[in-house]
């Protein structure tokens, strides 16, 4: 008689190894996408706030085009659609490698960056405009005023919403299962079809998602306590 909840299935053996490999893939997807999305988000926020109209518009178009399409559609586009437009040699080079994970990282990075750029932009706008004007009056360039005066204050305001976006990114990695990336949900589904132990497989995935999410939430709470927002 098999137990109602077979904990051993999760703690040792092949199925355990599959699930742990999935967890590591999910964490890597989150880490790499975050590392790429964050600088991209800052650049997009600055483009939207730049004095050049054309840049403002292109930043606006990027953010709206990405935010208003579901992540699932992004993933399918970057996996099934976009690579087909590449020149043959480059495409074959890419297909010989891990094209699934690459497409997932591109989609997750752009999607997360679009949301994060709005948070960064709000942060920058929360710093009184006179500070920027004062910096400009003292002869700093646009970039230098931003870098030395506005951004250091703005990013402090922005950290809590950015941590919240990181939480979303962590959960969003689960959608990569549809393009065959062997992340946590993919492996849980694989264990389910191999063993018919749906409850155990998805319990493992849920505990991982919940645990990691709570850690990220905890980090946000800690940060707010340690570095409270200073009002100018």
């Amino acid at each position: 008689m098999t137990p109602i909840f077979d904990l051993n299935l999760l703690l040792t053996g092949t199925y355990h190894d599959w699930l742990v490999a999935g967890l590591i893939t999910s964490l890597s997807l989150t880490g790499i996408s975050l590392a790429l999305a964050l600088p991209l988000a800052i650049v997009i926020a600055l483009i939207r706030l730049s004095p050049v109209k054309l840049l403002q518009w292109s930043g606006f178009a990027f953010v709206e085009a990405i935010r208003n399409v579901p992540l699932l559609a992004h993933l399918l586009f970057w996996y099934f659609g976009a690579p087909e437009l590449l020149p043959t040699a480059l495409r074959e080079w890419l297909y010989a490698r891990n094209v699934e994970a690459t497409s997932a990282i591109i989609a997750l990075t752009l999607y997360t960056a679009a949301y994060m750029s709005e948070d960064v932009r709000s942060g920058i706008r929360s710093i009184p405009g006179q500070q920027f004007e004062a910096a400009r009056a003292l002869g700093f360039s646009f970039v230098a005023s931003m870098r030395l005066v506005v951004l250091p204050q703005a990013l402090r305001v922005t950290i809590p919403p950015l941590i919240s976006q990181t939480l979303n990114l962590w959960k969003d990695t689960s959608i990569a299962t549809v393009i065959g990336v062997a992340e946590l949900m993919y492996q849980a589904a694989k264990v389910e079809s191999a063993t018919f132990r749906s409850f155990e497989a998805f319990a493992f995935a849920s505990v991982c998602y919940l645990g990691m999410s709570l850690l990220i939430t905890g980090a946000a709470g800690w940060y707010q306590g340690r570095f409270p927002v200073r009002t100018a």
Binding site: F80, P83, R91, Y95, V99, E100, I179, G180, Y186, K190
Partner: peptide, 18 residues
């Protein structure tokens, strides 16, 4: 082994050379 939600998606991926 790489798996997809439908057989159709898996077959498209084969046609694309993935």
């Amino acid at each position: 082994v790489v798996t997809f939600e439908t057989t159709g998606q898996a077959f498209v991926a084969l046609q694309q050379g993935k």
